[in-house]
Write a protein that binds this DNA or RNA. Structure first.
Lengths: 206, 206
DNA sequence: CACTATTGTGAGCAATTATTCGGTTCTCCC
DNA sequence: GGGAGAACCGAATAATTGCTCACAATAGTG
């Protein structure tokens, strides 16, 4: 966090409470504006307007437009990582199926709050070096965890554990994204079940 | 094609050969420019420059910037649909695994030429009503084909064929995209194998 | 050749938008 | 209360860029 990209780093540290609140209002406004208009059409002036602050104030806390979305992404990533951590620590002493379901559920939960904003993040966000590395880091973390599991769990039957782990992590992430973005969230459950079923059959024998 | 969105429709029909060539040069230049700079930074002036025509000529054939990328997307979709059609008609009288491999291979082939441009199309393209509908159409087509197959193929064991078909089509499309975009195209083969394996195990009995 | 239709040109317009900066208002603390 | 720093303001700027239009060149036709 502290050693971030210069161009995305916050401009100054808030000393007073109201400053902290202003920062939060900017983020919250930005989330709404980006979700509604997309990144390109989500202008900084619109964000400031929605946050009911002046455009000048906005630039006191964020050096540029990219930095605002970068922080939004950053927070999302952290929440997601925490969710996986939590779900996994609850579910760990179970079957492979249970663990997979934990992964899938965590992904779903993490994306259910604001599908629109998530679409912007996934599809329109400017890809900074730093954020790309963070994303990759989380992905690698999950992949390694899963690969390790595939090598030691008694139910596991896969040979190429490295590729399998990557495939599973990728599939969960991408398919959940798409599913959430789709107009019909009614069949989230059946999708979850089929996905878990698919992955379980793939990784276990018989 | 003829009944397209007004805002994306070509401005006029070429009457002479050189006009047709100019159109092609614009498209080709645009593909390069978009692949290199992305959509937002791929300016129309840059495209005209690369095509070695004047900016005025560009606007004689495309009413606006979106229309250029729309045609690029449109062509890609058609090539993709044809690839699926072809692969399937070759492979049809085979096992479920063979058919699935056909799907996967078609998807891979369709994306292998220009990963950069494909990334732009998938991630930065402006989503017009018309194009969204076309994409959905192709997806539905494939899904229906697969669902029908799952209901009649002797190897099939799935109960919820509708959800399963959607899951499979979605998974193939998304994972192949991601795999192609990834820096290491060396393990395309192992990824293909694992994917086919996963889907086959999912859809067939033990 | 003369006339028309088609194609090509590129300077510049119009509009948008991220960002700055000179100045005001508020908070805190002595 | 008063002084200093923190927070806030918003009109103005600078730069970009999609796109037009008045004109020039070329191709087809009788």
């Amino acid at each position: 966090m502290t050693t971030g990209d210069r161009r995305l780093r916050a401009r100054k540290q808030p000393r007073q409470l109201r400053a902290e609140r202003t920062r939060e209002r900017i983020l919250s406004a930005a989330a709404h504006v980006f979700a509604e208009h997309g990144y390109a059409a989500g202008t900084t002036n619109r964000i400031a307007e929605r946050a009911r602050i002046s455009i000048g104030s906005l630039y006191q806390y964020y050096p540029n437009k990219d930095a605002i979305l970068a922080e939004l992404v950053s927070r999302h990533l952290e929440v997601g990582a925490a969710a996986v951590q939590r779900t996994l620590s609850e579910e760990l002493p179970g079957s492979l199926e249970g663990i997979l379901r934990g992964f899938v559920r965590a992904a779903i939960e993490n994306h259910l709050d604001d599908p629109q904003l998530l679409r912007v993040i996934a599809e329109e966000a400017p890809r900074s070096q730093e954020l790309l590395e963070r994303v990759e880091g989380f992905e690698r973390e999950r992949t390694e965890f899963l690969q390790n599991l595939l090598e030691h769990h008694p139910e596991s039957r896969v040979a190429d554990t490295a590729t399998a782990a990557r495939l599973v992590v990728t599939t969960i992430e991408l398919v959940v994204h798409k599913m959430i973005a789709a107009p019909d969230p009614a069949d989230v459950d059946s999708f979850e079940n089929e996905m878990v079923d698919m992955l379980t059959r793939y990784l276990t024998a018989g």
